[in-house]
Write a protein that binds this DNA or RNA. Sequence first.
DNA 1: CGTTTCGTTGAGCGGGGTCAAACGACGTGG
DNA 2: CCACGTCGTTTGACCCCGCTCAACGAAACG
Lengths: 230, 230
Amino acid sequence: MSREMVLAPALRPIVSPRAPVVDRDGAGLFAGCPELIGTPAAYGREEEIFGEGEEAESVYRVLQGAVRTHKVLSDGRRQITGFHLPGDLFGFEPGETHRHTAEALTGTRALVFKRRQVERLATHRAEVACQLWSFATRSLRHAQDHMLLLGRRSALERVAAFMLDVDERLGGTGLFDLPMTRRDIADYLGLTIETVSRTISQLEGEGALLRTGGRQVSLRRGRMHRLVED
Amino acid sequence: MSREMVLAPALRPIVSPRAPVVDRDGAGLFAGCPELIGTPAAYGREEEIFGEGEEAESVYRVLQGAVRTHKVLSDGRRQITGFHLPGDLFGFEPGETHRHTAEALTGTRALVFKRRQVERLATHRAEVACQLWSFATRSLRHAQDHMLLLGRRSALERVAAFMLDVDERLGGTGLFDLPMTRRDIADYLGLTIETVSRTISQLEGEGALLRTGGRQVSLRRGRMHRLVED
DNA sequence: CGTTTCGTTGAGCGGGGTCAAACGACGTGG
DNA sequence: CCACGTCGTTTGACCCCGCTCAACGAAACG
């Protein structure tokens, strides 16, 4: 069941999108469901897709670009709970209202599905319900890994783990453009922008990565990996 | 929506268990599935139920007692990702092996289901698959709330939120026994035992709670709530 | 071009970690 | 029954990692 390529090798670098995502193995969610075709939608940079507290009418699948979902406290403190890249689903809620805000990091295209429709289909077709279950469980695993990071890892470990993660999701070449700002990284890792910046400098000083202009970085994945270690 | 009875009022104080949990609204997982009856099992205090890396053969439902699931780093740093009380399910994994260790906090009884059996049933009966999906989604929401806590809240807020949470799950009377040690609390909140202890003292100093002997505490829920504030 | 946002770097501080000691609640055996 | 050891908890003293505040350079954008 772990084998499900929803967010695996079909992924493309986010800031330079190319071909639309294809379900290479046919296991993608809602595949083989002609009665459930999402309607395409496009969002501009920093555009809100849905807000916390709004009624959860739709669920989304990223085609191109990147999306962040986050929660905020009344005083402005923000925690980003996930970045969603092509192939990823987001917007599922256990209840009637969204518990997150979702925003496009960059120009983004997505398929929009009616939640009610998805739910109705799930109650009729076990296959669809299983896919939803599988998706939720994988999200849960990510969330649990991230709890360990937020609760127990140092700033250096957090940033190193983050870099490796982004690299992997963007192709694993070791050379990529970060699709998000320092603020986004900080709010994802539970740090401040200054600490993220300083930590990246430190990683560069230790030869674990190279800043190659703009937001592009080149990782020494061996050294990087040693910093995360388990 | 937040009202979903799997872990709500049917719950009993953990350390003084009474009647076995009943699905008051019939929404409990695997309800109405005579072909899937879990086999009862009992675990002693601090006993391991399954370990990280082991093959995931079974899934569990707590009947009585309490269970913690956690992840550890090679150097011993530990993050508890959840406490599981009567009615709760745990042990689901997206893959073939457990990504967590599960241990009984106290003497605990649980129902054990064969994972393969559950999965097979889910592929045939949409109803079961939907329940699994719903369960996973609720767990995900908890995980996301906890990420916000770990990433962005102060020690005071964490402990206060924790106390309110435990109180609610244990009946919401404002008076209860903590079923876990300071170390467990610390590893759940991303703090140290000393900080947890000091913070509880501080809360007592501010009149937000009273330590009434042993692990029993009495909350001033109004003041407590003000400290968490969104 | 000016203006604004983003990123980097420095100086200083403080919340929470570390190390250490003492206390209380147990259970155990003399 | 009490001396003793164990384990969990509390409290103190000190320190350090990451936060705050601030200045400045570099892109992005009008």
